[in-house]
Design a protein around this nucleic acid. Structure first.
Lengths: 151, 151
DNA sequence: CTTAATCTCTCTAGCAACTAGAGGATCAAG
DNA sequence: CTTGATCCTCTAGTTGCTAGAGAGATTAAG
């Protein structure tokens, strides 16, 4: 049995985050020791590793909630899991495309800066005037429930 | 003079967001009409467009605060503005690289899914076992003050 | 001139996904 | 048996907004 600190060290999840996951019901309530401290077995460890990994891949906690309730029902078809992953893939691709547009724009700004005074700084100038932009870099449209990429 | 609603429509910023910017001191306090409603001139409009554009380019409000205080001092050297933009460019590039790793991994997961049952779903399996991953997709390290990319 | 519709005002509370800190209990090592 | 690390609960803060209540202002139509 692991204490919360060991579990955190083993999975790379911070201690308060583990308690937070329990609080929001993403992890089941842990067993307790005589002195009221949380104790975790290998099952809890696997579950947390699953969550951690999915977080690293950018899944929202909501998506992870779905995924892990699916994981608990091994005989059901996996179409749902598949579609959650596909949605996430789409969201990631969109985000990449958008960030690449930003990258272009920022690079242009930085390259054109003559390092003089603010009054003729290209960075400030471009920010003040969208018309000087080469590309469209509109804000991201919302995509399903797995919009935000974390950390 | 524009009311807050017209200003919002003109700049693409929502009304409560404008009030929020004023509240946190990113916009100066607006003039008021006889009936206590906010009124904006062209200066405020430019400032808000500047903020909006910088937000679209992923700058944090903190970075924007710096940038716009710089913009107010036209005779100072522009090295500071330049370096803020460079930091942002770096952060964006890092984020792109990381998202591309995620994209690879997600795609592998999705492609390998045989559309059977959960018990042999590749998506669930990979999430449960990081060792099945091709790449490292560690969480992003923090970069300066302009970490989060919004919207 | 009145009424109705549409702003606008302030204020509080909520979202994701944590993080930080206070103040106290418990545990393992020496 | 004491010290220091770890654990407990609880509240509040972070970023960048968004939503809603309840009240007042303004405008357009009739």
């Amino acid at each position: 049995m692991l204490t919360i600190g060991k579990l955190g060290a083993a999975t790379g999840v911070k201690v308060p985050t583990i308690r937070y996951y329990e609080q929001i019901g993403l992890l089941p309530e842990a067993e307790r020791s005589g002195g009221n401290q949380r104790l975790y077995g290998p099952q809890a460890r696997e579950r947390l590793a699953f969550i951690r990994h999915a977080r690293d891949l950018g899944f929202s906690l909501e998506a992870i909630r779905e995924l892990s309730s699916l994981a608990d029902q091994p005989s059901r078809p996996c179409a749902a899991a598949d579609s959650i992953a596909k949605r996430q893939l789409q969201a990631v691709r969109l985000r990449i495309a958008r960030l690449q547009a930003l990258e272009q724009e920022l690079q242009r700004m930085v390259v054109q800066c003559r390092h003089g005074t603010i009054s003729d700084c290209r960075v400030i100038e471009v920010l003040g005037n969208h018309a000087l932009c080469a590309h469209d870099h509109a804000p991201e449209p919302e995509v399903g429930s797995s919009d935000a990429l974390p950390r």
